[in-house]
Computed example of a mutant assay.
Amino acid sequence: MAPFAMRVDRAAADPVTQVASYPMDPGAWQLGPHVDWIPETSEPLRFARYEGMPDGAMTVSPGIAVSRQARFSSGTIDFDIKPLAYDDTGIIFRRHGEDAGEMVYLRANPDCPAADDCIQYAPITHQRMQWDTYSNYQGQAPINPAGWNHVHLVVAGEKLTVTVNHAADPTLVVPRLQGTTTEGGIAFKGPAIYANLVIRPGPASALPDVHEGVPAADTVMTWLAATPSALPVDRPVGAADIPASRSWHAIAAEQTGLVNLSRNFNVRRLSVGWLKTTITAGTAMHRVLRIGWARQITVFLNGKAVFAGDNPYRPEDRRLSPNGRLEADNASVPIALRQGANDIVLAVGNTWLGADGHIKPTAYGWGAEARLEELRQ
C-alpha cells in the first residue's frame, strides 16, 4: 500500500503560524540523543525519494529523529508511518529536549486491529516515558503492521484525538494530556519509515466534545507526599523509614486517582516515593484497599506494614494484570480501620529490571492509586 500523500506548500519563516509540510532530508532532521528508554544507535538516518512522497521519506533505526525546525502547540499533525518492528514507533510533540513532551505511538502487532494495545498515548516528564501508568490511554487501532499507515492528530490545548488510516471515528481520545509542556518541537521514534509530515496550527478550543470521565467510586483523591528517599539496599522498606510528620506536603491526584511520581519528582537513583492519606472512621470497621502501583509497594496502616508487592515487567510470568501496567486492580488488601483517624502510607519503589538483567531506576512510569471499598462477603 502506498502512503497517503498530502501535499501543501512549505511554510515561510514561521511554521508555528501557518500550514507547513516538512521535507524528509538531512537538512531538516538530526539523530536525537540516547536516554534510558530510547536505544542507543550508531545507524544514521536514511533519506530517499519515492512515488507518492513528494517531500521524501526518512528511515529511523532504533532511536529518534528530531526536527531541526518544526514547532507545535495546538492544531493538527498528519504523517505517514511504516513500522519496521513491533515497538513503540511514533511521534513526540511539544518536545523539550529529552526531558519532556507528549508521545503517541503504534505497536505494530500482527494481531492488530483486535489487540487492545495497538496504539497508546504516554506523557514524557523528567526523561520518563510513562506508558505503564496510562493503560487507559491505549486501545485497538486499524493498523497495517507491515505497511503504510496514516496518522492524524488533533490537539486542542489539553485535549487530543488520534485517527488512524482515515477511520470514521477517532481511534484514540485523550481528554487531558498529562505532560508538562504546552509547546515544543517534533521528533519521530523508530524503527520505522516516515513521510508526508504536515502541521496545521489551530485554536486550543477545537475539541469541545472531548470530556473527562469521573473517578471510580471510593477513589482516594486526597494525598500528601514526602521527598523520595534512597531505596534500602539490604532490607525491605520498614515503618522506621516513614518520613517525619513535618516532611509531608499536598500532592495532586489526577482525575483517575493516579498520583504520578514520575511527573512530580526528578529522581535519578533507586528510590522510594512516599504517599499518605488519612481515613476517618466513625467506628471500627473492615474495608478493602484496592491499589495500583509501579513498580514496588509497601502499604502501612497506622505505622504497621499490612502489604508488600512487586509489579514487575520482567520476568514476563511475574507481571500483574494488565500485563505489568498500573491499575487499581493490581492488588486488593483487606484492612481493619480503627475508630477515628487512620493513616495509610504507601512506599512506592522505582526499581526496573532491564532487558540486560541490570537493576536501575525506571525510565517509565512511577506512581500509585487507591480505592477504599466495603468488604464484600
Rank of each mutant, 00 (worst) to 15 (best):
G101V: 06
N330S: 07
Q339G: 06
V267L: 12
R95W: 08
G184P: 01
A363Q: 13
T182R: 11
V348H: 02
A11P: 11
R268L: 09
S332D: 14
S67K: 12
L337E: 02
A239F: 06
E316P: 06
W223A: 02
A368R: 00
M6D: 13
A239Q: 14
S67R: 14
L84S: 00
D329S: 11
R235V: 12
M221N: 01
D99H: 05
V214I: 15
G213N: 08
D25R: 11
T76A: 11
E254N: 08
H126D: 07
A13Y: 14
E373M: 11
P142T: 04
V306Y: 07
T277D: 01
T182W: 07
R371D: 05
A192K: 00
P3Y: 03
L84H: 00
L177K: 13
Q339F: 04
G52Y: 04
A284P: 06
E327Y: 07
K189W: 00
E183V: 13
E374G: 06
H152A: 12
V220M: 11
E51F: 07
A65V: 02
T277V: 04
V333N: 03
D329C: 10
D132R: 08
A28K: 09
V155E: 00
I199G: 02
A226S: 13
E254Y: 07
E183Q: 07
N342S: 10
L375G: 05
D317G: 08
D111Y: 11
W223S: 02
P315Q: 08
G349D: 03
I359F: 10
G157Q: 09
A122L: 09
I124N: 03
N136H: 09
I143F: 01
Y313F: 03
A347P: 00
P201I: 08
F265A: 07
N330G: 03
I359D: 07
R325I: 00
L353V: 06
G324L: 13
V306W: 14
D169R: 15
E98H: 10
G27V: 11
T133D: 08
G282E: 11
P26I: 08
Q30G: 06
N323Y: 14
W293C: 00
R268A: 15
E40Y: 04
T171F: 03
A2S: 13
V233S: 10
E102L: 04
T182D: 15
A336P: 00
Y364M: 10
Q120I: 00
A57D: 00
P312I: 04
G238T: 14
A226K: 02
Q18T: 12
E183G: 05
V233E: 15
M1S: 06
Q138A: 05
V299N: 03
I64C: 05
G340W: 13
G90I: 01
W293D: 00
I359W: 12
I124V: 12
L177N: 03
A115H: 03
L261S: 13
Q69G: 04
D80N: 12
K360S: 15
V299A: 04
G190R: 01
F4P: 07
V259K: 03
F47T: 02
I38D: 01
E183L: 05
M129A: 08
L346M: 03
D25M: 06
Q140T: 10
